[in-house]
Amino acid sequence: MSITINGKAVDPPEDPRVSLLDLLRDHLALPGAKMGCNQGACGACTVLVDGERVLSCLTLAAQMEGRSVTTIEGIGSPDVLAPLQQAFVEHDGFQCGYCTPGQICSALAMVEELRRGVPSHVTGDVSSEAIAFSSEELRERMSGNLCRCGAYNGIIDAITATCRETAE
């Protein structure tokens, strides 16, 4: 069975040690997902698997057979940016740009989680069906994506500007 990556079928690697991140970066020339720690501590490698955000550094590519992977390259291109990508530029949601693809992939899935009503650590009443779209909820839910340049305010602004309506 193959892995679908940004809509294209790809054979899983022969060596089962290859992580999804290394498959993307070293084998498929898709370096948009970034390596910041290779140990699940920074979020730079975040990609979408069947629409859910996961860390590609801790995912063995072999586990992805039959799954559909979307990377930043599948979200938009420099000429045709997705609205959230455009908002990151407008709101200066990055400086060096290295954690950015992970932040964007993470945010896209995060908004879906919020819409679905998945509670978070800062949700007041976890039994409540609807979760309010607040800065605090966004910040908690994005906390798995580190940004050492400290573009956190701009990232939250970009997500808020783009995704508020979707979430509500």
Partner: peptide
């Protein structure tokens, strides 16, 4: 597990424990 309706209503401590662990990406995996 964290978002399961029964867990959220009958065992909220479990939902709270789940969502305070790691990051959303890791919890998805």
């Amino acid at each position: 597990l964290a978002e399961h309706r029964r867990v959220r209503t009958a065992y909220p401590m479990l939902t709270r424990a789940m969502v305070s662990g790691a990051s959303a990406q890791i919890r998805n995996m």
